[in-house]
Design a protein around this nucleic acid. Structure first.
Length: 490
RNA sequence: GCUCCGAUGGUGUAGUCCGGCCAAUCAUAUUGCCCUCUCACGGCAAUGACCAGGGUUCGAAUCCCUGUCGGAGCACCA
């Protein structure tokens, strides 16, 4: 029975089981973002995966803002909430939200304890000199100072009595460790720039990621850490601290980098920020930006992203995410519910002679019960240049009927729909020339101008429509002179 | 230079721990056909992969070795 259940479980989930999950009473996972800007698409992977695990193991989802560098990776005060919004957009609700910059005293307490255990020493070696000694396996002269001296100097660090670069606290690991990356790493350093959060603005002695994160993971009861391969050595470094404190290190999963196709722009917070400042992008939700805010505005459901991210699994090799998989997920979720509409780009005007005064295409081809649209045809229509028939040729205006081009006019013919079924006549979309609604479609490749059928103004902002033969789009707003929509995907 | 890690079709993934059920799963992509008053949805079909070479074995995607390629760390960034 248990075996059967286990097999069913495995079939239902794309992600592998968490390692040694049975050894933990509570499965607790954390996302530890640096709030230095809104999230791009790649950031969605962590909440997608740990949120999925949380649901599967009935665990906890902790968001911990690792905002311990007020200078080089200076936090953006808006980003804290923007990141929480992004997580909500993806469909998850964190069980706990904490900020490292609120917890300095906790890190200090543990540093004191570590010093007393003989596991750390203050060091004033210039960076380069220490690096040289370390790389040749030599201890620096500060390594053997007694804990009392270190305590005094660390207290002075905490009191802000040193400037940046003058003093650090190092964890005493193994100066001859075969992996140079693990030798006596820095736990605390001085930063002159005040933290942007008022609550933390007085602190000058800041922990490095490996110390802060290691302490917090233990204190918050994290059972499984998921992080990138760039942090492969972190666990090894932190284990030295865990050993001093006699703590058990959580399970760790390392995954590779994600690259996303379909974007020309860089998937980097700082690069996007620069492009916005330079005016190359309108903002974080510019349709050309590879950000979650952008996808959201384009009408991509968070779940479509989550499913794609979960599908990537957690392997240590680098992976390429195909946007088409997000689009396929999204299309699958919205197609049945999304009304159809006509949009003609770069419309070419043709007078219509002899036909009825309106066209009535269905609201949704698979659901007759949803009714049909009513699109007036006064005297002329707009067609996309590529669709316009050659002189003498016929085309079927969808929901209206067959016409034959005669010069600049389209003459209604009495052809039966069989001419379409036989493949002789193409079905195309159209809009009335004079009563249509100007519409700007914002796409990844720039804005496209066109005219939509008049009924488009009935849709509230945030509604999705499928512009037939063009693709799905989200109605963003109706302005005085035009409607603005964001293109999602085909 | 030192230390780690990885390699299944265009993309992602299953299988690798415990070798045979794998002439390799599923999804996506592309192409073709069917359906259709959309180039959507749906249906059908096709395309396409175990990095290379040795070894162990009756048998290797799976175990071992070497090589190749790729990634990461050796920061007072996260």
């Amino acid at each position: 029975m248990a075996e059967l259940d286990a097999e069913d479980e495995a079939d239902e989930h794309d992600l592998p089981d968490l390692p040694n999950a049975d050894d933990y009473d509570d499965i607790r996972l954390r996302a530890a973002p640096n709030p230095n800007g809104p999230w791009h698409l790649g950031h969605a992977r962590m909440p997608s995966v740990i949120g999925t695990y949380k649901e599967r193991y009935d665990g906890a989802f902790v968001v911990r803002f690792d905002d311990t560098d007020p200078e080089t990776k200076r936090p953006d005060l808006d980003a804290y909430d923007e990141i929480l919004d992004a997580i909500e957009y993806l469909g998850f609700e964190p069980d706990e939200v904490i900020r490292a910059s609120d917890r300095l005293e906790t890190y200090y307490d543990h540093a004191r304890e570590l010093i007393d255990l003989g596991g750390a020493y203050t060091c004033s070696c210039p960076q380069g000199e220490f690096s040289d000694m370390k790389n040749s396996g030599e201890a620096c002269p500060h390594r053997d100072k007694d804990p009392e001296t270190t305590r005094e100097e660390f207290e002075a660090m905490m009191d802000g009595e040193y400037s940046a670069g003058e003093k650090v606290l190092r964890v005493k690991t193994d100066i001859e460790h075969k992996n140079p990356a693990l030798r006596d790493w820095v736990a605390f350093r001085m930063i002159d720039t005040p933290h942007p959060r008022e609550e933390a603005s007085e602190y000058r002695c800041w922990p490095m990621l490996d110390f802060q994160s290691g302490i917090d993971d233990h204190l918050t009861g994290i059972s499984h850490i998921i992080r990138g391969i760039d942090l492969q050595d972190s666990a090894k470094r932190q284990r030295f601290v865990y050993d001093y404190f006699d703590w058990e290190y959580p399970e760790v999963i390392h995954w590779g980098h994600v690259q996303v196709d379909a974007y020309d722009v860089s998937m980097s917070t700082s690069t996007i920020k620069e492009q916005i400042e330079a005016g190359e992008l309108d903002g974080w939700d510019d349709p050309r930006a590879p950000t979650l805010a952008s996808l959201r505005r384009r009408g991509i459901r968070g779940q479509a992203i989550v499913d794609a991210m979960v599908g990537l699994g957690t392997s240590t090799s680098n992976v390429d995410l195909a946007m088409s998989s997000i689009y396929a997920n999204n299309r699958d979720m919205i197609d049945e519910d999304t009304d159809r509409a006509f949009l003609v780009r770069d419309g070419e005007r043709f007078v219509v002679e002899g036909g009825p005064d309106a066209g009535h295409p269905p609201v949704h081809p698979n659901h007759e019960d949803r009714g049909e649209r009513d699109i007036p045809v006064d005297e002329a229509v707009l067609l996309e240049p590529d669709d316009a028939p050659a002189d003498g040729e016929r085309v079927w205006l969808k929901g209206y009927g067959p016409v034959r081009r005669e010069g600049d006019a389209l003459e209604f013919t009495d052809d039966d729909i069989d001419v379409v079924r036989d493949g002789d006549v193409d079905v195309i979309h159209w809009v009335p020339a004079d009563e249509s609604q100007p519409l700007r479609l914002r796409t990844m490749d720039g804005d496209v101008s066109g005219h939509a059928e008049p009924g488009i103004t009935d849709y509230d902002p945030d509604a999705m429509v499928q512009f037939e033969r063009i693709g799905f789009a989200r109605i963003d707003r109706h302005e005085d002179d035009e409607t603005v929509a964001y293109y999602a995907h085909q």
